[in-house]
Design a protein around this nucleic acid. Structure first.
Lengths: 404, 404
DNA sequence: GATTTTTTTCTCGACAGTCGAGAAATTTAG
DNA sequence: CTAAATTTCTCGACTGTCGAGAAAAAAATC
């Protein structure tokens, strides 16, 4: 549905545009902002003085003039304009990071997670305590925290910060909005972890390729299997989604998955699944909840030595991933695939299966094999994705609500 | 990538908005346009006088005043402002329709298609002749044709009017842009047929539910299998896509498909595939190119009488569709599914398989069975989708280029 | 038949935004 | 000390939207 436009909307959008180039390129002078945004110098003056009055940006210290002419006055975000807390939930720990408005990390710590399966309620309490702790350590006033950005593996509601399904809590939904609302007036957003990886990789690609960038998928391999897709929208920036890839159907009536369904991709390609087939346990046995990575390393070593059964287990995993990816490509478009997560250390064993699985589909036969690259540092990408997303959300909120 | 906004952009968008409500609701008075668009009366005056000067809309004849007060002056599109040619390519014919700017059908005819498989070049020549013929019959000047909107089954390039893969021509690509450019200066767009069905259904839904409408998938069953997905974008209207669903992998190393790959959904659910399994022909035999519907009707009759083998053929088809739909839902979100096309006449036989196939996935077990409805009149929906899309493209082009 | 009421359309002035041009500021080069 | 170079700021012109009220035109009322 189309909606009306007005001149104020123009100002809002251009203000957000100015903030976004400031974010992308760091402190900039008047002229540079004008160059990047293609807005006239007069407009930049109007917008920046407004933002300065609203205490969102500031003129930086006079730096030694380099070159002749009137020295530049650099503009940058005011660090103390607002703060962001990033919460990264992983299978064995929760990491809290406090970040200022300029994206600089101020404080960070991790807390172990108890693997109490009945602990959705206790877990929420732990997160609340963790948030209060990082706030307390920093001596920042609570109102200054504008956004809490949370990520987890699993399935996330697309409009509200509700964890719909997760590897640990299953269908015990967690609504972070209502859990944090009494204590915090900050906005709360929740994203799938692999979606953030995809977003970060997409942003990097766009830096390099510019308008040539079209789309990209990130596949995260570990105890569970995650997928994030980022695509350039028709006009409005990037569009990202995190499908329920790990639990997409690989094979009807196939192996039993942790989720209770049969034949999920994860039931072939998750760490526990690889372990299960390597030990030739029947595929309908209830799988182990957690698998020490050392255990899997042993199997991988055997496979690399040429033992047939463990090699077959990795191959089966690769096939499931390849088939699944081919289905994803059938439903979207040809795009490069970046593989991340702890499972990348077994990529040598998975590769053949993945490629064979991809090759079994019409789309790959027709358009050719998609580019596959292995990307380490999943943790860094997750954090980078958090910052990209969260800070631009903050920019928008500040302009819409703050500058009158 | 964000881009700058300006006051002229505001006018453009609001002009398009005015044209779009005029399109949706027919001839409207000044006041009504103001109500629908939420623009002030003064703005409506400014915009409509501009559009009237540009000969895009006109004041309608004074209608007998109904009620007191100053009588309304209805505004409507000028029919002769521009024309649209709709070309619907189906497996056995090509239908040409000439439509005026108000969406009224002026002329229509169909031409049989030769089933010459080597005939991609000949086919393009036939389309060019068909276009000239409908133009000639109408005595409209060629410059007045602003848009040629083409649809076909198969896979379409998302940015250019290139048919990448089709059931009839296979991978012999057809680039309609370059084929028509010398003769026509009209814009050329090409869409997958089922995408248009989805777009039309989505528009209907949006009429009823308004902002509540989220998303919808259209599944077209026939000689081939098509899928169209329509989803409400974050702001900018609807987002539609036509994935390569018929040739998504159903089962690795499965039955041989017309496309040459093994295990496509179509190799189980296309008409030829149902015929093949009903006659217990091995699944690796090269399938018949075309199957008379009467033949399939016979098989359906036997299945309804309780014969096991033909019933099993339909059940297998349903399973393939259900599994495929469940995969699509895993990659997107829960959405209603509308089934169209000639295959709907066998829905009673397919239904159980579809539901079982859906039920085998995690997503359906968790979120429940999606709503499935059967929608007849595929032809009407295709045409409706053409009009929806094409006329709004014309509106936009006219405003961007025409009104200075 | 004249006047009032009602409804719709049009017009005017106020206000918000962007832009180009040129003035002002400020440093380096000569 | 002056001229050149470079950046920032300011002013007037232009385009856009909006609210209020004038103008138009028909029905209702006296």
């Amino acid at each position: 549905m189309l909606t009306k436009s007005s001149t104020e909307l123009v100002r809002q959008r251009n203000s957000v545009l100015v903030l976004s180039v400031l974010r992308r390129h760091g402190a900039l002078a008047h002229t540079e902002i004008s160059d990047f945004t293609r807005l006239s110098s007069a407009t930049i003056s109007a917008i920046t003085t407004e933002l300065e009055k609203a205490q969102i940006i500031e003129k930086s210290e006079q730096q030694p003039a380099s070159g002749r002419g009137r020295p530049r006055v650099l503009l940058r975000q005011r660090r103390d304009c607002g703060y962001l807390i990033v919460v990264i939930i992983s299978s064995d720990a929760v990491q809290y990071s406090l970040v200022d408005y300029a994206g600089k990390l101020i404080d960070r710590f991790s807390e172990e997670r108890s693997h109490d399966p009945s602990g959705a309620v206790r877990f929420v309490a732990a997160v609340r305590a963790g948030l209060l702790r990082i706030l307390d350590r920093s001596k920042i006033s609570q109102e200054k925290v504008l956004l809490i950005s949370i990520s987890s593996k699993g399935l996330v509601n697309s409009t509200e910060p509700v964890l719909v399904w997760s590897p640990i809590f299953g269908s015990d939904q967690i609504d972070f909005e209502s859990a944090l609302r009494p204590e915090w007036q900050a906005k709360v957003i929740l994203d799938n972890e692999t979606l953030l990886v995809a977003a970060a990789l997409g942003a990097r690609e766009e830096m390099v390729k510019g308008a040539d960038f079209r789309s990209l998928a990130a596949l995260s391999l570990g105890h569970s299997v995650g997928l994030g897709i980022v695509r350039r929208g028709n006009q409005t920036g990037q569009e990202i989604s995190a499908p329920n890839f790990g639990h997409m159907l690989h094979m009807a009536n196939g192996g039993l998955c942790r989720c209770g369904t049969r034949g999920c991709i994860e039931a072939y390609a998750g760490f526990y699944a690889i372990l299960r087939s390597a030990f030739e346990v029947p595929l309908d046995t209830i799988p182990a909840k957690f698998v020490p990575v050392a255990e899997l390393d042993k199997i991988a070593a055997k496979a690399r030595q040429g033992h047939r059964v463990p090699a077959f287990a990795f191959r089966q995993a690769g096939l499931a991933l390849g088939n699944g990816l081919s289905r994803m490509l059938s439903l979207t478009e040809r795009m490069p695939i970046a593989i991340t997560g702890p499972g990348t250390r077994y990529y040598d064993l998975l590769r053949q299966g993945i490629e064979e699985g991809l090759g079994q589909s019409h789309i790959v036969r027709m358009e050719g094999m998609p580019e596959i690259r292995v990307v380490a540092d999943e943790q860094i990408l997750v954090f980078e994705g958090h910052l990209n997303r969260a800070l631009s959300v903050i920019d928008e909120d500040i302009v819409v609500s703050g500058v009158q």
